[in-house]
Computed example of a mutant assay.
Amino acid sequence: MTPTTETELAEAIAAANGPLRIRGGGTRDIGAPVDGATLTTAGLTGVTLYEPGALTLVVQAGTPLDEVEALLAAEGQRLAFEPGDMRALLGTEGTPTIGGVIATNASGPRRIQAGAARDFCLGVRFVDGQGQVLKNGGRVMKNVTGYDLVKLMTGSWGTLGVMTEVSLKVLAIPETEATLVCADKSAETAVASMAAALGSPFDVTGAAMMNGQTMIRVEGLEQSVAYRAKALQDGVLQGFDIVEGAASARMWADLRDLTPFAGKEGAVWRISVKPSDGPALVRELGALSPEAIFDWGGGLVWLRIADEEDAGAQMIRNDLSHMGGHATLVRASAATRAAVPVFHPEPAPLAALSRGLRAKFDPRGILNPGLMGA
């Protein structure tokens, strides 16, 4: 089913007599497999409102992400939360949509400085599991009263409702960028360097370790970037080299899209921990021979391991039980994703709240049932 209007979508959901597999562009095949009729938002396209001077964009959920980014770029603006393209990593096809980005809270390396997708979502329109059209938020910041359904819907993976329209805050594209890099650092040393850079007054917008290189990004006006990069080199990042402009942008695009893991076999985990715990976690998982990428100053760890048995789920989550944090199985075979909880199991009180929310917004349990677990 590919409705082309919000009314058609509402009617389709209201008339459904069984589970629905909710899809945007079909590029983020993450979560437990869902059996049901496919309902896609790809037919809901177009820009409702764009006011560059107000840094505000209102767009239909099925609008391709590349069209949104091209529209913004023509006005010297961008989505500051840097959403990634998961097609190469996941082996999927289709076209990423803005609704899929918001539904999954897809946020890239700049989250460490700018915030996540949910922080830039001003308002949403969506259809709940009974076919009712709901809206929350608006077209300006601080326009939410009552329950903040905007934050609730962002990252709900289509389990509470199907988004039809999103309102977003956008930001200007900086004049230039530069990345300070240093090779052959240990994970512990890399995290220490990232922490020092993030703790500096030089407005770092990316801090990661990938392919054996520690990467620290600064963005802004050309003279400001040059000054801040030099100050970092002379201070907490001595021995780091500088990569500028387009070459710097390519490095962060590879990190954003997890290019180093694309085309390689194995399961991929997304693990959130305290930055200081990331290297210790990877070390404790040595028996799994993990390949690791560190982002967000070390607080986000991407692991590639063999997709065998439980794909390391028990060992990873046992370690996290005493470290704190959570792990999501981003890529694995359908059989593994059916057998292993893809999203981190919630504590009992939180799980009860989640069930209550699903019962309220989708009392029939037809929207992506089982995708995020029980």
Rank of each mutant, 00 (worst) to 15 (best):
T2E: 15
A12I: 02
A14D: 10
R21F: 02
R28M: 09
D29M: 13
G31L: 08
P33V: 06
P33T: 06
D35P: 00
D35K: 13
A42I: 01
P52D: 10
A54N: 14
L57S: 11
Q60A: 15
Q60I: 00
G62R: 03
A73M: 04
G76T: 06
M86G: 00
A114I: 06
F126C: 09
V127R: 09
G131L: 04
V133K: 11
M141F: 07
T145L: 09
G146Q: 03
Y147L: 13
L149A: 02
G155Q: 11
T159G: 07
V166S: 04
I173C: 09
P174A: 11
T176F: 02
A187C: 01
A190K: 01
S200G: 13
T205Y: 07
N211G: 12
S224D: 13
S224A: 14
A231H: 10
V236I: 05
L237I: 08
W252S: 02
F261G: 12
V268D: 04
S272H: 13
P275K: 12
P279M: 11
A287G: 00
S289P: 00
E291G: 03
D295T: 11
W296I: 01
R304L: 04
A306L: 11
E308A: 14
G312C: 08
Q314K: 15
D319P: 00
M323S: 04
R331A: 06
A335I: 05
H344Q: 13
A351W: 12
L353S: 04
M372A: 14
G373D: 08
